[in-house]
Write a protein that binds this DNA or RNA. Structure first.
Length: 641
RNA sequence: GCUGGCGUAGCUCAACGGCAGAGCAGCUGUUUUGUAAACAGCAGGUUGUGAGUUCGAAUCUCACCGCCAGCUCCA
């Protein structure tokens, strides 16, 4: 038998006289590695530690520390949970149980069982899972041809697995068996159940089979698992912290906004929330001035005829608000594009005007399903930082490049990294092959040119054009889809938009829909959670609070407040009859950045000063004396251009 | 829209078939305070809405509305 040469990631090689398992290779490298190995990656494919490498290959040992180990741990934990549930509550019919790599849950398993799982069951399930972990079972893998696999699944009472097997369209499938529990699975799995060191069952909800509400509802049990209890505790602490940053909670605590059942999905912005809302719009406007956008203001309500022409009446009617006045039916706008098409069409357009960039902060109404509205992230009344760029096909590339540059600049200001996804032509689409090829090529070329990695989502584009979606990562590593660029070959067609080319011929423009923050409401919700309510100074509704130590300084405090306000600072004051400690506590809870404390000493000083307390610098015990002018200067210097 | 859970004072929660209560916030008074909570008093409610069961309902039943967790959707 020929030897087997294993290439390791560090460039070294191990030669074996006969096929070796991943575990054997790990053992040959070192004891520690062998103990820590949870899986292997053979020629880029994840396999179990007992996988036998038959021929020359590259191998990476996946340990507890490897990025890939989380997926394996979580997947194995889903099996562990199913086994525990089967032990506790009798026969369980299983559907699917995938690992989840983002968010607070680590995995779920969809199951069908007679017992209805309630939160009181969670500790029991956790205990049973840890019992199985303590049994330290080693999963065995075996493969069966489809017909035998179906027989086995039927024998072990797993009708949903029969359906899965038949749906795969392959000739053989694999199973894993640990103790009394056998499950259809591709793997890989942890070498032993003992690798699971800490588990938490977190939630149980209903989930329809095939996501179809006419079908049976299964119980979806969510949990998370770690190699150690310590990591589990850290994870739970992190998400407990996330709850404190929930924008709905901070919205109430910081007096930013509220909701009333009288208008579900329609936020009421309080003065401070409205300040943030308008601040974000002003921030985008400042960019627009430099980027050659022209802002327009457009109607709210249109005769349904417009929506018939735009196609919304056929495709989006269920999400629109309509009203009847006399014999006429009107629809409230859910999008700005038709208005902008009408503006383009309002007179003859020349190639000299292109690219024509029309920005619009108009308010949009979308009748979202009652089950999906929630907080600021999904509202029924929204304002996008919307714009439509009408351009010639050969201008697409430049426009997209500019947009990406602008978008990156904006997100850098907020400290959120971006990740791009390019969605290409779906099976059902509108527009010529030539146009699609050209547009997709342009988008791809621009993305490549920026040099940053991007994923291609094949066939996920809109029917009217390809798009680039950006995912922004917040301070808790959660991703949000906010910034989007969509090409549209349909709008110009439907509204018969044309411009006169240099040669005098009539040409169709291409339309680019784009929103950088997305919707202001949603972005604000995300920003509240990203910052925990501690907004960047340039956007904070209150930048300074003047605190009087005693009533005797109230007048002085008022004078300082006025002076700061004249210097362009957003300032208020606390001249209540509380002790200074209480005022500081109040300002701290309101997350006000600068506290300008004025007592007897400050009031006596010439020229006038305040004792400054900076929340960014809380360790500093002795507060520093600064003049109002100096304070204002510092604040204004901190504001980005 | 579907499934499940939950709606008590502005906020956080208690009372769980028998007189609706506390803390914080608010108001009034006292206190004049030096770096994260001074003290006292007052006020605050048709217990989401509407029916029903009961001698009696915040509590049990039903319907509706809203919120939350998911599913689905997200031109």
């Amino acid at each position: 038998m020929a030897t087997v040469t294993i290439n390791l990631p560090d460039g070294s090689k191990k030669v074996f006289s006969k096929p070796a398992t991943v575990a054997e290779v790990a053992a040959a490298i070192g004891k520690r590695l062998a103990a820590d190995a949870v899986a292997g990656k053979v020629d880029g494919k994840l396999v179990d530690t007992f996988f036998k490498i038959e021929r020359d290959a590259s191998l990476e040992i996946i340990t507890k520390q490897s990025k890939e180990s989380a997926e394996i741990l979580r997947h194995s934990s889903a099996h562990l949970m199913a086994q525990a549930v089967a032990r506790l509550f009798g026969p369980v019919k299983l559907w699917v149980g995938p690992p989840l790599l983002e968010g607070r849950y680590g995995f779920y398993y969809d199951m069908d069982l007679d017992h209805r799982i309630v939160p009181e069951d969670f500790p029991k399930i956790e205990a049973e899972m840890m019992k199985i972990a303590a049994e330290n079972l080693s999963p065995e893998r075996f493969e069966l041809p489809v017909d035998e696999a179906v027989q086995l699944a039927e024998k072990i009472g797993q009708p949903y697995k029969v359906e899965l097997i038949k749906g795969f369209g392959v000739s053989t499938v694999s199973f894993y068996k640990q103790g009394e529990f056998t499950d259809l699975c591709e793997g890989p799995h942890l070498p032993r159940t003992g690798f699971v060191g800490g588990v938490k069952i977190m939630n149980v909800t209903g989930a329809y089979l095939h996501g179809d509400q006419s079908q049976k509802m299964l119980q979806r049990v969510y949990g998370c698992a770690f190699f150690s209890q310590k990591e589990l505790d850290a994870h739970l602490a992190k998400w407990a912290d996330a709850e404190k940053r929930d924008h709905r909670r901070l919205g109430t605590e910081l007096d930013l906004f509220f909701f009333d059942p009288i208008a579900p999905g329609h936020p009421f912005f309080l003065p401070k929330g409205a300040f943030l809302f308008n601040g974000l719009i002003s921030y985008m406007r400042r960019h627009y001035e430099r980027e050659g956008y022209q802002e327009v203001v457009t109607p709210q309500v249109f005769l349904s005829q417009l929506w018939k022409q735009s196609g919304h009446y056929d495709h989006y009617k269920d999400n629109m608000y309509f009203c009847k006045v006399g014999d006429d039916e009107f629809g409230v706008k859910p999008m700005n594009c038709p208005s902008h098409a009408l503006i383009f069409k309002s007179r003859h357009r020349s190639y000299r005007e292109l690219p024509l960039r029309l920005a619009d902060f108009g308010m949009l109404h979308r009748l979202e399903l009652s089950g999906v509205v929630g907080g600021l992230t999904r509202v029924r009344r929204l304002t996008q930082d919307d714009a439509h760029i009408f351009c010639a096909p050969e201008q697409i590339e430049d426009e997209i490049a500019n947009l990406i540059r602008l978008g990156r600049k904006v997100y850098k200001t907020f400290g959120m990294p971006l990740r791009a996804e390019l969605s290409t032509r779906p099976p059902q689409s509108l527009g010529s092959d030539e146009l699609w090829t050209r547009a997709e090529g342009a988008l791809q070329a621009v993305l490549q040119h920026t040099g940053e990695p991007f994923q291609v989502k094949k066939g996920e584009g809109a029917f009217y054009g390809p798009k680039i979606d950006f995912h922004a990562k917040d301070a808790l590593d959660r991703e949000w889809q906010l910034f989007t660029i969509q090409l549209d070959f349909n709008l110009a067609e439907r509204f018969d938009l044309e411009y006169a080319s240099q040669k005098g011929s009539r040409e169709r423009p291409v339309v680019i829909h784009r929103a950088i923050l997305g919707s202001i409401e949603r972005f604000l919700g995300v920003l509240i959670e990203h910052t925990g309510g501690d907004f960047p100074l340039w956007l904070a509704p209150i930048q300074v609070r003047v605190l009087a130590v005693t009533d005797k300084q109230n007048e002085y405090a008022e004078r300082i407040e006025k002076e700061l306000r004249i210097l362009g600072i957003r300032v208020d004051r606390d001249t209540s009859s509380e002790k200074i400690g209480a005022k500081i506590r109040k300002a701290t809870l309101e997350k006000i950045r600068y506290m300008a404390i004025v007592g007897e000493e400050e009031a006596k000083a010439k020229p006038e000063v305040v004792a400054l307390r900076d929340r960014k610098n809380l360790d500093k015990t002795d507060s520093e004396w600064v003049s109002p002018k100096e304070l204002a200067k510092r604040i204004l210097e901190e504001i980005p251009a």
